[in-house]
């Protein structure tokens, strides 16, 4: 077994802290974007009004004083539009990229220092998981305008990094024989990516509920106008969840194969297995709900939210308090 590179390990820990601090800055910019939404929209609408007034003056037709129609500011396909400038959000994204680079260095350095996959204990699982969430989010940002969940994503990433460094600090080390398996790499990495996507759709479903209420109550103001329509949010979280659900199914199967190899039983109703199954069933229900009359909209959003809460429960309460064969690893 290759000895641990302690110097690199120290750099890893340092960069983890640096990354967390940069995420904090990014989080502030996204929050600022959220808080200043009403003002930017008003500014935009004033400009439009001026343009329109000018046009009206220029035109020979009768001058009307009809108000500017409430323009849709964001695309329901979450494409980037140039309807409104959001400098704070853009700075937030830029800073987040910097944070992700520092974060990626920290995670890779730790992996190199220990010569293994960087998710052998809860600290590593949470920091790597946070990186995956960031990377998944940034990749989506390349194609889709998901800036409206920036506050949420940076917030979750910050929470995970703080939880890891404060709650479960673990010096770099080799893992015990039970975790020395190829399945650690596949089973855990796919689970982490799935959770990253579930986290994203969770935030979309929460926004969907708010947006839906706002849509019912009449004119929408402030940040909610920068959020796509509730049906668009529902469609997109469904599409993303369909991807994550396949990954979760794979996680279950890969976990069962690993369990057979390590313990002889592919399924043992271990606390962790039970909850992974419960989560699978909830999301299976979510996917079916879309094809069931009376279960779309609010109910399916709640199912998605329940699913993610079960994931959070699985990785916090179940890990820490439930007796489980999985507990040796801290996950």
């Amino acid at each position: 077994m290759t000895p641990i590179n302690e110097t690199l390990a120290q750099y890893s820990e340092l960069f983890m802290l640096i990354a967390a601090l940069i995420y904090l800055v990014s989080f502030f910019f996204f929050s600022w974007d959220m808080a200043s939404a009403s003002r930017s929209i008003r500014k935009l609408e004033n400009e439009l009004e001026t343009v329109k007034t000018k046009e009206l003056v220029g035109a020979s037709g009768p001058s009307t004083t009809e108000p500017v129609e409430r323009k849709q500011l964001v695309s329901d396909d979450m494409e980037y539009t140039d309807s409104i400038k959001r400098p704070a959000a853009n700075i937030g994204v830029a800073i987040m990229i910097v944070a992700a680079l520092a974060h990626a260095f920290a995670v890779v350095a730790r992996a190199v220092a220990a010569s293994r996959a960087p998710w052998g204990n809860l600290y590593e699982f949470m920091t790597s998981g946070a990186l995956v969430i960031t990377v998944v989010y940034l990749l989506f940002l390349l194609r889709k305008d998901l800036r409206f969940v920036g506050t949420f994503v940076t917030g979750v990433v910050l929470l995970m990094m703080m939880g890891a460094t404060i709650g479960f600090p673990t010096p770099v080390g080799n893992v015990q024989p039970a975790l020395q398996s190829w399945w650690l790499i596949t089973h855990v990495s796919v689970a982490v990516v799935a959770m990253g996507i579930f986290a994203l759709t969770f935030s979309m479903s929460v926004l969907q509920l708010f947006k839906q209420r706002a849509e019912k109550q009449g004119p929408i103001n402030g940040f909610m106008r920068l959020v796509p329509s509730s049906s668009a949010l529902e469609n997109w979280s469904y599409r993303l969840n369909a991807v994550a659900f396949v990954m979760w199914t794979f996680t279950l199967i890969a976990g069962a194969i690993w369990a057979e190899q390590a313990w002889g039983r592919y399924w043992n109703w271990d606390a962790k297995e039970v909850w992974t199954f419960v989560i699978w069933v909830i999301y299976a229900g979510y996917l079916h709900a879309r094809a069931t009359r009376g279960w779309t909209g609010t109910r399916s959003a709640w199912l998605n939210i329940t699913g993610f809460l079960a994931i959070v429960f699985n990785y916090t309460i179940v890990n820490l308090y439930f007796p489980s064969l999985h507990s040796y690893a801290g996950f």
Binding site: W269, A271, V274, W275, F277, V278, V281, I282, A284, G285, H288, A289, A291, T292, R293, G294, W295, V318, F322
Partner: peptide, 19 residues
């Protein structure tokens, strides 16, 4: 479909006490 969905969700709830 609705019954199947309810049974599915019920299965999730029923699995919990075992943990």
């Amino acid at each position: 479909m609705r019954t199947a969905l309810m049974l599915l969700l019920l299965l999730a709830v029923a699995a919990v006490p075992g943990s």
